[in-house]
Design a protein around this nucleic acid. Structure first.
Lengths: 263, 263
DNA sequence: CGGGTCGTTGACTCTCATCAACCCTCGTGG
DNA sequence: CCACGAGGGTTGATGAGAGTCAACGACCCG
């Protein structure tokens, strides 16, 4: 994906989060930035850093993670081109976690001053950015459930579902390239690499996924969803891009039981 | 805590997140709201709801949680007076999780329109609210680590540390009332109630905590911190209130509290 | 062709889940 | 005043899911 294409897809994503006008779009596309290459495994931000800018992922994948005092790593999220990967660190002044390049990445570093004045001058963009961080938070909540209350098998199914939505928007190709090692998957699921290996084999034995190298093929989306207990409501896809992801969301009606009796 | 006192402490909290002017403070304090009582265990918001307002917690404690398709519950966070407990649900249009009263609660429901116009007209307040949601997100990240990469013992220590910071700001009294059942603690830690019982006993045997009913006493803050691997950076306390929480952040809190007494 | 990273598998261990019983406390009502 | 029931806390016995240790295999790249 090229720089220009990523910028445009980012603008399109924000359109779904707040109605932008021409001036907003122009302001986004004319942001000053410094393009940079970040090699695989290099850090984009480290816990304790005081970022001086916001980093937009242009190409490649990045992850957030934390390391416990015991030395264990927990991966917190995965990010795709078009995501600001350390906006919260900038706004909170100090990074409370690490951001690392999962693959070779191209990033655009926007100076903090430019972000600040964008937020001040363009309330609708500020709102879109806010919603962006709120969706991240929603995904964090689901990950708490994933590591806390699902066994390794369902949690792996769930992760495969989420990655499908993020890496193969619309689920049109029936699969996606997942450039994570089993050790990294283990750190995302809160288990050991050995156990991930066995769980992936189980998934494959039950034909919930098929693997060719690190390409994940999903032969039966409905079955995988069911095994995962996956409900994409938490991804707030309707606010990701206008009219995207057709066909997704049918099952969300189950959760839509508004209880008007209480507050 | 009274309504007025909670409102003032909320304003004070926001002051630490963005510099407010007199107009901002007045706008916050003159927000229209409807005060309501929410009985223990009643829901403030349910997954799938489309909230029409933002709920400010005035008195009592509330929790966020999700239920998996398997029926297991995972608690996602705990909230104290002064917190907006469903702001993200309002901004994302649809609630992706439940909010429930842990104890009897008093809440103030601010109409969505009032929140929207506050955000539009008062960029500094909008920024403060944004930072508020960012800090929530940071806590979610730490909870992912807690359930994913800490064993039940350390995770329990960590939770006791976090609750100390939230329920006994400044850690001056050396303990706090924790109105959660062991079953609820289990749902926060991602384990079973039986195991929580044993782990709490272990904590007590090692004199990391002492319990009288549901009051948690912390005899040695430094030891508990160490057992938990607790680092309060993720709470972003410096942005919670100006000059609050002295003594946190080092291990010599006793000496620091002595200094404080002179002020 | 050699070395490194990653994936795979087996044997054994341990944390935590499960099931079940029993206790305590407190509020209620006879 | 005591009986009763319900919710929550405590404890023991047993089992399952995941961790640990260790070895080997597959693949890639220089």
């Amino acid at each position: 994906m090229s720089l220009r294409a990523t910028l445009l897809s980012m603008v399109r994503k924000f359109e779904g989060r707040a109605p932008l006008d021409d001036g907003d779009r122009a302001a986004l596309l004319s942001l000053p930035f410094e393009e940079r290459h970040v090699g695989q495994h290099r850090y984009i931000a480290r816990e304790g850093d005081r970022p001086r800018g916001a980093t937009l992922l242009i190409e490649g994948l990045a992850i957030r993670h934390k390391i416990t005092t015991g030395g264990a790593r927990q991966i917190l999220s995965m990010h795709v081109p078009g995501d600001f990967v350390d906006l919260e660190n900038m706004l909170l002044k100090v990074a409370d976690h690490n951001v690392q390049a999962l693959t070779d990445c191209q990033v655009a570093v926007v100076p903090g001053a430019a972000i600040s004045s964008l937020i001040d001058a363009r309330p609708k963009i500020a709102h879109a950015l806010w919603v962006d961080t709120l969706i991240d938070a929603s995904i964090f909540r689901e990950w708490i459930v994933n590591v806390g209350r699902r066994d390794a098998f369902s949690a792996a199914c769930h992760l495969m579902c989420e990655f499908a939505c993020r890496l193969d928007p619309g689920c049109v190709t029936g699969g996606y390239e997942l450039p994570m090692t089993q050790e990294q998957l283990a750190d995302a699921l809160g288990v050991t690499p050995v156990h991930v290996n066995r769980v992936l084999r189980d998934l494959e034995d039950q034909h919930l996924i098929a693997r060719r190298k690190r390409f994940i093929h999903i032969p039966d989306w409905a079955r995988l969803r069911k095994a995962a207990g996956f409900n994409e409501l938490y991804l707030h896809l309707d606010q990701s891009a206008p009219a995207a992801f057709p066909g997704l969301g049918d099952h969300a009606s189950i959760a839509r039981q508004a209880d008007e009796a209480l507050v």
